[in-house]
């Protein structure tokens, strides 16, 4: 890795050089800084949402981090497909927001960008993970404030399995349990 850094010609200075280093730090999934991680959040039992099943799908780890914005929030969860057929999340809907979209956060030249996506594939015997820094359900135009400890309902419609309603707990702003693709780091001294 180090040699890759130093192979960069000196002409690549300033922003270019900076971008390169940042990309090195963030380009690959599964590396230490590659996956977006908050803290491994201790999960009080009360906040664990039971897995919801619909058809061959199991939806778990549903949560929204308490939004600081009065207008927008993101919802994260994991969908596991136990069946033999591919499926896909097509839409999400809730009464608490004017508009709900499926989004992906992507990195482009050191900038992050939110991209609406038309569907989120849930491959046969695979899973779709909506997590920090990647896919999320985006709530736009919140109709009421969301505070840690609140709950609301979100209706998900899948291509094959059909529609199902899940309960979304509002968790701490730092919560990022679904993003644990990186190895755990030592906890802070507390």
């Amino acid at each position: 890795m180090k040699s890759s850094v130093y192979r960069v010609p000196r002409r690549l200075t300033g922003l270019s050089g900076m971008l390169l280093v940042l990309l090195l730090a963030s380009a690959c999934g599964g590396t230490r800084h590659g996956a977006v991680t908050g803290e491994p959040t201790p999960t009080p039992t009360a906040a664990v949402s039971a897995a919801t099943r619909v058809g061959a799908l199991v939806i778990r780890d549903v949560f929204t981090p308490a939004p600081a914005s009065p207008d927008t929030a993101a919802v994260y969860f994991t969908v596991q497909n136990t069946g033999d057929g591919d499926d896909a999340l097509l839409t999400a809907a809730t009464d608490i927001a004017d508009e709900v979209q499926l989004h992906r956060t992507v990195m482009e030249g050191g900038a992050m960008k939110m991209q609406p996506v038309p569907r989120i594939a849930v491959p046969a015997h695979g899973e779709a993970r909506l997590a920090r820094g990647g896919l999320h359900v985006m709530l736009l135009g919140l109709r009421r404030p969301l505070r840690e400890g609140d709950r609301f309902e979100l209706r998900l419609t899948f291509e094959r399995a059909g529609a199902v309603t899940v309960t979304v707990p509002v968790r701490a702003a730092t919560a990022a349990p679904g993003a644990a693709t990186a190895p755990p780091t030592p906890a802070m001294g507390h």
């Binding site: 890795m1 990309l23 482009e108």
Partner: peptide, 19 residues
């Protein structure tokens, strides 16, 4: 540059520079 970064970063001996 993003492409260069990705190519460089996802090589066989991947370790982030920020380690």
């Amino acid at each position: 540059l993003a492409l260069v970064g990705l190519l460089a970063a996802c090589g066989p001996s991947t370790r982030p520079a920020a380690g």
